[in-house]
């Protein structure tokens, strides 16, 4: 494990890369599409839009999106989750609205929510439906704008929950639809900075403990706003690199257990800070590989546990950031394949 060459920490060894069960993972993801029951999994039903984003992006990372059997059904599903949100009681701001607002729900019978609006736009982007995105852009922008509060924070929906996750979801959605000027970006940045802690990390609201998931959202939001230079990157990087545990996996907070999902949240944050080499790529890669289900495909939260689509996506995304040669590169800020970012003509270094 110990090496004197710094570079060996930046990428995985061939022996680790060879452990990826790519075909099994594609099969497990396609089973989600083909089998009528699998999408009905009770606990994911309300956030099927996000599950769709995890599954589609996983397939894209595995360079197997073309194997999707019924693309039309996916588009119909996304269409079925569109929600006009200008009805009474839902528009909580007094701002004049040029376009009627449009948000997306977690499923066809759910309400609009910012998180699923981002997931829907990401799904459309992965599928290359840029014309569709542009056609709805003004209405989606109106929805996102209606959720910003005076202090710069964002609500998740019309019912007022505030969380830094929504700051990222709002700014990324607007970036993807090219309507960043729809909100007060400076206020959004100031709110995110108000959730920064001494340890360099960020919490869900001011004074809340740092959490790697929130750190990802806050670093992403600041990066989207071009404001990452306003934080102490060395302290933040220190906190992030300490997430790696002796088994190679990453935890989300001090003295917590490792979980494959932090492979994405911690690593993408380090990547946005250009400090990915502050953790050991080989050890993390090997940990994710051990969490694969070698019988049915998919990746679990940690070795020996049950695989699911959420951890499958975050495991593959982590391996992609680590530079796995069989996987499409994922962009740490957009959480989308770099090929999609190129198609959108966005700068990959942004």
């Amino acid at each position: 494990m110990m090496t004197s060459d710094n570079k060996s920490h930046r990428s995985m060894d061939e022996s680790v890369c060879a452990q990826l069960l790519a075909e099994l993972h594609v099969e497990s993801l396609l089973r989600l599409e083909a089998s009528s029951e699998s999408y009905l999994q009770f606990l994911l039903e309300h956030k099927k839009m996000s599950a769709m984003y995890w599954a589609l992006t996983s397939l894209a990372l595995l360079r197997s999106l073309h194997t999707l059997a019924d693309r039309g059904a996916v588009l119909a599903f996304i269409k079925g989750c569109e929600r006009e949100t200008t009805s009474a009681g839902e528009d909580k701001t007094n701002r004049s609205q040029i376009a009627p607002a449009l948000g997306y729900a977690g499923n066809v019978d759910q309400d609009a929510h910012l998180l699923y609006t981002l997931s829907a736009v990401q799904c459309l982007a992965v599928l290359g439906e840029f014309v569709l995105i542009e056609a709805q852009a003004d209405r989606i922008a109106a929805y996102v704008r209606s959720l910003q509060n005076a202090d710069g924070s964002f609500c998740g929906d019309a019912y007022g929950e505030v969380d830094t996750r929504f700051s990222y979801a709002a700014l990324l959605t607007l970036q993807l639809i090219r309507r960043t000027d729809a909100v007060d970006v400076e206020a959004a940045v100031n709110y995110v900075l108000s959730c920064r802690n001494f340890d360099g990390g960020f919490g869900c609201i001011p004074f809340a403990e740092s959490h790697a998931g929130q750190v990802f959202c806050c670093v992403g939001a600041l990066k989207l706003a071009g404001a990452l230079d306003r934080v102490d990157q060395t302290t933040l990087g220190w906190w992030l690199c300490q997430r790696q545990l002796p088994n190679g996996g990453l935890n989300g907070r001090p003295d917590k257990k490792e979980d494959v999902c932090y492979s994405w949240w911690v690593l993408s944050s380090l990547s946005m800070l250009d400090k990915q080499h502050w953790i050991d790529a080989n050890a993390l890669g090997a940990f994710i590989m051990r969490a694969q289900d070698d019988e049915y495909g998919g990746i679990a939260d940690r070795p020996g546990d049950r695989a699911d689509v959420f951890h499958t996506f975050f495991g593959l995304a982590g391996l992609s950031l680590l530079g796995h040669p069989s996987l499409e590169h994922i962009h740490p800020m957009y959480a989308l394949p770099c090929s999609v970012i190129r198609q959108l003509n966005f700068s990959e270094s942004a």
């Binding site: 089973r31 989600l32 009905l40 699911d308 689509v309």
Partner: peptide, 23 residues
């Protein structure tokens, strides 16, 4: 959507049941 039929929803395979649940 995606040919989901509530009445015919039978989790025939154990792996499908657990595959998609974020557990």
């Amino acid at each position: 959507v995606l040919s989901i039929q509530h009445k015919t929803f039978i989790p025939c395979s154990i792996r499908h049941l657990v595959l998609c649940r974020a557990m």
